[in-house]
């Protein structure tokens, strides 16, 4: 019914998508499948797969990126689900406060938030000073027989994961919270009526019916986490190179090779899409699973 009548309403969006999504992907595809060759007439592009075959040396970066993103996603889920669950069950006052706490950091710039984490995690940062004052470090030294004057927190993979969790947690909480508040309370009463205690109600009704929210949340955390780049440099101190950094390096950095960069981006995209397809399959395909 609506399809034919106001179809032209979608034109601006379609043009936008073509200009900024489809065409760039095509350009990247072309870049990834070619290499520059010096000839008599200057530099020309020649079709080749060597960008992809040469990528094997970066397997460890791929591995680290997906591994850290996975850990961050799992932690986000472990923290986010209970928070969303509590919010959906408590009164509106509690909901407002928690929602404000979740949203507040999101109003600040991503880099600012990350810099403040640096200040906290620094070797002589806030947290280490606090540990010093409280004698935690001395206690640790006595217990383990070691001799350190600070905990190494910055420039570790843990710091990168922490940064991801901090930045992406709201994207886990909100979709789960939305699904849980929409959950029909009578279904829970029906389950209780049929003999289910609180934990059974959760396991057999609440959880299965919130899967679509979980899928959305996981997608919205995992996808940006995989391709994250500033975080790993700022909090990982360059020791934790991730895909985002690698790609950035190919386009802007010292290792200038946009063809390789395009190829890495394509591979990353394909892997992410596959992950999402698998996830959406678990979510029954229904619900508000977000792809991009």
């Amino acid at each position: 019914m609506m399809r034919t009548k106001r179809g032209w309403f979608a034109f601006p969006y379609m043009i936008w998508m073509a200009l900024f999504v489809v065409i760039p992907i095509v350009i990247m595809l072309v870049y990834s499948l070619t290499v520059p060759v010096e000839t008599a007439e200057g530099e020309v592009l020649r079709g080749s797969l060597e960008n992809f075959t040469g990528m094997t040396q970066y397997l460890s970066v791929f591995g680290r990126s997906f591994w850290l993103a996975l850990i961050a996603t799992v932690i986000c889920l472990a923290i986010g689900y209970p928070v969303a669950y509590l919010m959906s069950r408590e009164g509106p006052g509690f909901q407002r406060v928690v929602m404000a706490l979740i949203m507040l950091p999101m109003w600040m710039n991503f880099l600012l938030r990350t810099y403040s984490w640096m200040a906290i995690l620094e070797n002589n940062g806030l947290l280490n000073q606090l540990f010093q004052k409280l004698g935690v470090i001395a206690l640790y030294n006595r217990l383990t027989g070691s001799d350190i004057d600070h905990f190494q927190m910055i420039r570790t993979s843990g710091a990168v994961v922490l940064g991801m969790v901090y930045n992406y947690l709201p994207f886990m909480i909100l979709p789960i919270y939305t699904v849980l508040t929409k959950l029909d309370r009578r279904l829970i009463e029906a389950a209780e009526d049929l003999g289910a205690n609180a934990s059974t109600v959760f396991r057999r009704v609440t959880l299965p019916l919130s899967v679509s929210g979980v899928v959305s949340g996981v997608t919205m955390v995992f996808v940006p986490a995989v391709s994250t780049f500033a975080l790993s440099r700022l909090l990982g101190g360059g020791t934790q190179m991730m895909l985002g950094d690698l790609i950035e390096n190919q386009f802007l950095g010292g290792a200038y090779n946009p063809h390789l960069g395009a190829a890495i981006s394509m591979v990353m995209m394909v892997i992410v899409v596959i992950c999402m397809l698998v996830m959406n399959h678990f979510g029954d395909g229904e619900g508000e699973a977000v792809m991009l």
Partner: peptide, 17 residues
Amino acid sequence: PPYKRQVNTVFQKYALF
């Protein structure tokens, strides 16, 4: 609590899972 009662309910609008 409801889950310990020998009573079952047919809910308004059924509340099927």
